[in-house]
Simulated scan of single mutants.
Amino acid sequence: MTETDNACSWIRSWGASPQAAHDGLGSLDDHPPLADVTLRQVVRVGGGGRRVRIRFTNEFGTGPLTIGAAQLALAAPGGAVRAGSERVLTFSGATAVTVPAGAPVLSDPVDMSLPALAELSISLYLPERVETCTCHDPALDTGWTIPGDAVAAPTLPENAGDLPVRALISAVESVPDAPAKAIVVLGDSRTDGAGSTPDTHHSWPELLAERLETGYVVNQGISGNRMLNDGIGAAALARFDRDVLATPGLGCVVLSIGANDIAISFAPRDDGSLADFLKMFPGAPVTTDDVIAGHRQLIARARERGVRVYGTTIAPFEGSELYTPAGENARQTVNEWIRTGGAFDAVLDFDTVWRDAAHPGRIRDDFHAGDHLHGSDAGYRALADSVDLSLFS
């Protein structure tokens, strides 16, 4: 098989949408500068394969990013790597690379037997200070910083520190053993897995990948993200081409977005802590017609690529500090269109799964994380279990 043939068969098996550090939740605000340091991060892929490459990102960087060395391995507990699985990553044959500001870079492929649902350890050495870190905030998988070049360290040294974001990595791609298609989920914090137990892979897209067994499910949720306006991460309409349509092996898109557009637009306006929170979300309030039009745009752009488009209804949020009756009415209006408008190839009715039968504006107590907004592990499991797997066959 030629390299061209291999390129045609690449499929994305893991992803994390890139953000600027200042457009996230602020997890890096008090973190020491990233300079002369090794980052070790663990990701769990959906489907496996026989060749692997990593997409590193400097897409929100304000200057060049130098990667002095990088290594891929199967992860072992506690930040260690599985002996014999280590692969040195190169870039056009070189062990180091400088990534221009605003750009990603793909590593050269490495031969690797990668099982479905495998945990990968990705280590990269940063010899120079990273002025602006492109990241995904927060990371629900523990990552570490190690002083100096420790890319090849088999275990974590005692001086390792915590890394609170997914830093400088945006995708894992593989060549599958059999034809396959990627399922990309575009969403907000409820897609990202906010409220779930860290290091357990309990976001609903990851749990869906488990049900599919060899499912290439790519989670492109951003906590706090909106469809129509930037704020926490670029708006879904703005990042759709990069995070979804450019996905190798794309076969299906699940749109699970719009909840924050509604919640922020109809949130209570006061002078308290909520007012400070809302400052993170610029732009004028939007209407239900705006949210529906945004969905139609995303659907049209996906269908141009010949992929199926599924939509999820918006789950309840009464009991959270963002709730208002007007916001609830808007949620119901958009959900009615999602269910009956005929715009999607299929609808995943997450509202019905999560809502309290006795109080439909609220999430069931056992399905939220204590904030009446985000899922618990059980809540995300219920969403994943509700999905008809035949939609992806």
Rank of each mutant, 00 (worst) to 15 (best):
Q71R: 06
L72Y: 07
L72P: 09
L72W: 08
L72F: 07
L72V: 08
L72G: 06
A73L: 11
A73D: 01
A73Y: 12
L74D: 11
A75Q: 00
A76K: 10
P77M: 02
P77A: 04
G78C: 13
G78W: 11
G79M: 08
G79R: 06
A80Y: 11
A80F: 04
V81F: 10
V81W: 01
G84F: 11
G84A: 04
S85E: 09
S85T: 14
S85I: 01
E86R: 04
E86F: 05
E86I: 02
R87N: 06
R87I: 11
R87C: 08
R87S: 09
V88L: 02
S92K: 02
S92P: 02
S92M: 06
G93P: 00
G93V: 11
A94G: 10
A96E: 15
A96R: 15
A96G: 11
V97G: 12
T98I: 00
T98V: 07
V99F: 14
P100T: 00
P100V: 03
A101H: 03
G102R: 00
G102S: 13
G102C: 05
G102I: 00
A103F: 03
A103H: 02
A103P: 00
A103G: 01
P104A: 10
V105H: 00
L106A: 05
S107H: 12
D108H: 14
D108Y: 14
D108Q: 07
P109R: 03
M112D: 11
S113V: 11
S113H: 01
S113W: 00
L114F: 08
L114H: 09
A116W: 05
A116D: 08
L117S: 10
E119G: 03
L120N: 04
I122V: 12
S123A: 15
Y125W: 15
L126S: 08
P127E: 03
P127H: 10
P127K: 05
E128Y: 05
R129A: 14
V130S: 04
E131N: 10
C135D: 04
C135G: 00
C135R: 01
D137M: 02
P138F: 01
P138D: 11
A139Y: 15
L140A: 08
D141M: 04
T142K: 03
T142Q: 12
T142Y: 01
G143V: 13
G143N: 00
G143Y: 07
W144H: 04
T145A: 06
I146K: 08
P147S: 01
G148I: 02
G148N: 10
G148Y: 06
G148W: 11
G148M: 03
G148S: 09
D149F: 14
A150W: 00
A152I: 13
A152T: 15
A153V: 11
P154H: 14
P154M: 06
T155Q: 01
T155M: 01
L156A: 03
P157Y: 13
E158K: 12
N159Q: 15
N159R: 13
A160W: 05
G161L: 12
G161F: 13
L163T: 02
L163F: 12
L163M: 13
P164W: 06
V165S: 04
V165G: 06
A167K: 05
A167R: 02
A167F: 12
L168I: 06
I169T: 05
A171R: 06
V172N: 14
E173P: 15
E173C: 12
S174C: 15
S174F: 12
P176H: 14
D177V: 10
A180C: 13
K181Y: 01
K181Q: 04
A182S: 15
A182D: 13
I183P: 00
